[in-house]
């Protein structure tokens, strides 16, 4: 089945089986491997992307459900000139990542959170990230990163 989507401002299409998960459409069919898979139960959030500006776990969406969707992935967050998105910059400055595997999903979940709640409390940040697991950082610096990003103007999906 032909699945056409707009990802990070570009149009993509691929002919996939209806059972194809959106994350595999991105990774295996389009080569957009920045979005990771960390579990099989919608628990970890490593595969978080934006559909229409909202965070979504792409392992729990079929590619066919996303036909025509406006998608942003981690590859679309930095500017065309390579300037990091403020959330990415905050993660770097606050050491909000170690192995980096959960990071794309964390960044996508965190930017979605701030678009809905631009000035969250620390508790709200923790709640907003409840569906994203990290094994390295103990979350301390991730929470710090998101709080830091909330202190500066944040635009969602700068690359799209």
């Amino acid at each position: 089945m032909l699945v056409e989507t707009t990802i990070n401002g570009q149009t993509y299409s691929a002919d996939v089986e209806p059972r194809t998960l959106l994350v595999h459409y991105l990774r295996d069919h389009l080569g957009l491997t920045g979005t990771n898979v960390g579990c099989d139960t919608s628990s970890c959030g490593a595969c978080t992307i934006h559909i229409g500006g909202e965070s979504v776990k792409s392992c729990t969406v079929l590619a066919v459900q996303a036909r025509g969707a406006e998608i942003t992935t981690i590859e679309g967050m930095a500017g065309d000139d390579g300037t990091l998105h403020p959330m990415q910059q905050a993660f770097m400055e606050c050491h909000g990542l170690q192995c980096g595997y959960c990071t794309p999903g964390m960044v996508m979940a965190a930017t979605s959170l701030l678009s809905e709640n631009p000035n969250p409390t620390e508790a709200e940040v923790r709640e907003g990230l409840e569906g994203n697991l990290c094994r390295c950082t103990g979350y301390h610096n991730i929470v710090k990163s998101v709080m830091a990003a909330a202190g500066s103007p944040v635009t969602i999906g700068a690359g799209s």
Partner: peptide
């Protein structure tokens, strides 16, 4: 319910 990303879908 679940987490925010789940609640978006």
């Amino acid at each position: 319910v679940g987490d925010p990303s789940v609640r978006h879908r």
